[in-house]
Nucleic acid binder design. Structure first.
Lengths: 114, 114
DNA sequence: ATCAACAGTTCCGAATTTCCGAACTATGGA
DNA sequence: TCCATAGTTCGGAAATTCGGAACTGTTGAT
């Protein structure tokens, strides 16, 4: 369990990113992690968008985001801290993450309307 | 069969676009349509990326792209002509389509490496 | 050291989605 | 009319996703 797998930035595939963010729930979680607002622990995402996300689903969402190369996860004590890999990503795929979050209307700093 | 469904631009959802383009085969088809190089008929996409795409799959890919709002399709005689909705899309989701095609390395005008 | 609580993961069966061959439909020409 | 062409629909097998229940790993209390 210790060494959680994270793809090297050069192994990150665009299709994985698009697939990961094509689920609005997952995209909302990523937006929150990228925004840096929450502590970044999984529990912070338990209810996104007016729905309670079952924790097995949540765990899976985080895993998909991690394996797609969107976030980095590390255990700190009993909880898992997640943070985005936006700067690395933006170097590899310029403008991608930003355009996607913006399309959802969830760019860090924007209002969360839709 | 005549009135093929096309979503109004304001009904286009980002998740549908990401889902449609999270399949590299579909993304390659869209890149080709957006590039405008081919005549835009389905037959032109029969073998993308070193694989022969079965025509039922191809038909389905086109349908997914159309219903996601990425392309517009109209019958001209016996064949179907497809063209991209890039300009409308770029107004609604600025930079999105471009960032995605660029991530794949298929921006119109770029080399198709990767 | 043992126990309990907590945060998150894994397992696995049900539901949904995707894939693609075969059959079908629509259009245009001979 | 009959055929060829271009694409669509059908339907079942395969793959993926979802989520409840059970499990693991860590911390703090006794």
């Amino acid at each position: 369990m210790r060494p959680l797998f994270h793809p090297a930035i050069e192994d990150v595939r665009p299709e994985a990113i698009l697939h990961a963010l094509s689920d609005p729930e997952r995209a909302a979680i990523f937006a929150q992690i990228a925004g840096g607002g929450s502590g970044g622990t999984c529990a912070a995402f338990a209810n996104m968008r007016e729905r309670v996300i079952p924790k097995s689903s949540l765990s899976n969402h985080i895993k998909v985001l991690r394996e797609a190369g969107l976030i980095r996860c590390e255990r700190q004590g009993v909880e898992m801290h997640n943070h985005s890999r936006c700067s690395e990503l933006d170097e590899r795929f310029p403008g991608l993450a930003m355009a996607i979050l913006s399309a959802y209307g969830w760019l860090p700093g924007e209002a969360k309307a839709d």
